[in-house]
Amino acid sequence: MRFLHGLWARLPRPLDPLRSIKVKFGVVTVVTACTAVLIVLWGYALGFRARQTMPVGVLISLGVVQLIAHGMTAPLREMTTAARAMARGDYSRRVRASSRDEVGELAQAFNRMAADLAAVDRQRREFVANVSHELRTPISALRAVLENVADGVTPATPEVLESAVEQTERLGRLVTQLLDLSRVDAGADTLERTTLDVAAFVAEATAAYPDARLDIDVAPGLAAVADRDRLHQVLANLLDNAVRHSPPGGTVTVTARPAPDGGLSLEVSDEGPGIPQAERSQVFERFNRGAASGTGVGTPGGGTGLGLAIARWAVDLHGGDIFVVDSPSGCRIRVLIPRAAACDGN
């Protein structure tokens, strides 16, 4: 039975070249009428009456219609089957979209939707796995430290307590990223622009990495008009990414200069493996963790793939731009924040 169904599905669809389903219905009607009339006339020529040839003509007409109209409604049936499979979590089904009419266009749109849903489902699974891993690691480390202190195995020295604080800070960063992601999905796009002393702002952001080797280069007297919290999200995520992917003893460089339009040009570079040219257009997408991974001074592992996506969102709110700059070694990311007057209309 399955073999016959597959064979029927592979039969040619003669009406597929027609671009309108109305024309197809017209062709089916004309073919049906002509077939019935020809059968009746053929019966008269052989001496049969119309009441004898008419049922045969109708049956033959139905068979001819099945052959020529094959495929007109097949995509609709396939979409019904695929939709039921998608409801069960199977997004691999696709519809054969060979016709050029409205049903064919619907089938193509359905296939695109199925592909998008499959990509979203894959990203969701990867996100859950990444977040679960990121949560499990600091929680396990924190639990081990606290159990050792509680059991008297390890004395509560400042070093031990500092390691516990580092794990809680890592958890805090992850929770912050998840909250930022919820703001992105909720469409939170309000800005509270203030005039920032860039040198003081950069010093405040980099103070969160006391163990990292940082080279800070800010133009004297540089000021910028931006939302402090949003811009802090940008710089914090870039620093976290750079510190994490830097090799032990590597230097992370933060550079701030006036932009050509009078705004702010902010760069963060590291000495890590860098970002391949083919991946540069994707690193700012949500859940993208990249091929490279590092175990620098900061958070170990490859992260959740949210930091750069959140940074791009915050830069977009300012009407600016964020991109990877060519560098002989490591990764270099530049942020351009335009003058406030240039983005008032955004």
Rank of each mutant, 00 (worst) to 15 (best):
L171K: 02
R173E: 03
R173Q: 03
V175W: 00
T176L: 07
T176Q: 09
Q177I: 01
Q177F: 02
Q177V: 00
L179H: 06
L179Y: 00
L179A: 07
L179G: 01
D180G: 02
D180S: 08
S182W: 05
R183Y: 01
V184G: 00
V184I: 13
D185R: 12
D185Q: 07
D185M: 12
G187H: 04
A188F: 09
A188K: 07
D189K: 04
D189T: 08
T190M: 05
T190H: 01
T190P: 00
L191F: 02
R193V: 01
T194K: 06
T194H: 03
T195I: 04
T195G: 01
L196A: 05
L196I: 11
D197F: 09
D197M: 09
V198H: 05
V198L: 10
A199R: 14
A199T: 12
A200F: 07
A200S: 15
A200L: 12
F201C: 07
V202G: 04
A203P: 06
A203T: 12
E204V: 15
T206R: 12
T206F: 12
A207N: 11
A208E: 03
Y209P: 01
Y209L: 06
Y209Q: 04
Y209E: 09
P210N: 07
D211W: 10
D211H: 15
D211R: 15
A212Y: 11
A212S: 15
R213C: 09
D215T: 05
D215M: 06
I216P: 06
I216T: 14
A219D: 13
P220D: 03
A223Q: 09
A224E: 00
A224G: 00
V225I: 11
V225P: 02
D227S: 00
D227P: 01
D227L: 03
R228E: 15
R228Y: 10
R228Q: 12
D229R: 12
D229I: 08
H232M: 12
H232R: 15
H232L: 14
Q233P: 02
L235Y: 05
L235K: 04
L235C: 04
A236D: 15
A236K: 06
N237R: 14
L238C: 14
L238R: 06
L239I: 11
L239D: 04
L239M: 15
L239Q: 07
D240R: 04
N241V: 09
N241H: 15
N241S: 14
A242K: 14
V243P: 00
R244V: 01
R244N: 02
H245S: 07
H245T: 08
S246Y: 07
S246G: 10
G249Y: 04
T253H: 12
T253M: 07
T253Q: 07
T255K: 10
T255F: 08
A256L: 03
A256E: 01
R257I: 08
R257D: 13
P258S: 14
P258R: 13
A259H: 15
A259N: 12
P260S: 13
D261L: 12
G262Y: 08
G262N: 11
G263K: 13
G263M: 10
G263S: 10
L264W: 11
L264C: 14
L264Y: 11
L266R: 05
L266G: 04
V268F: 08
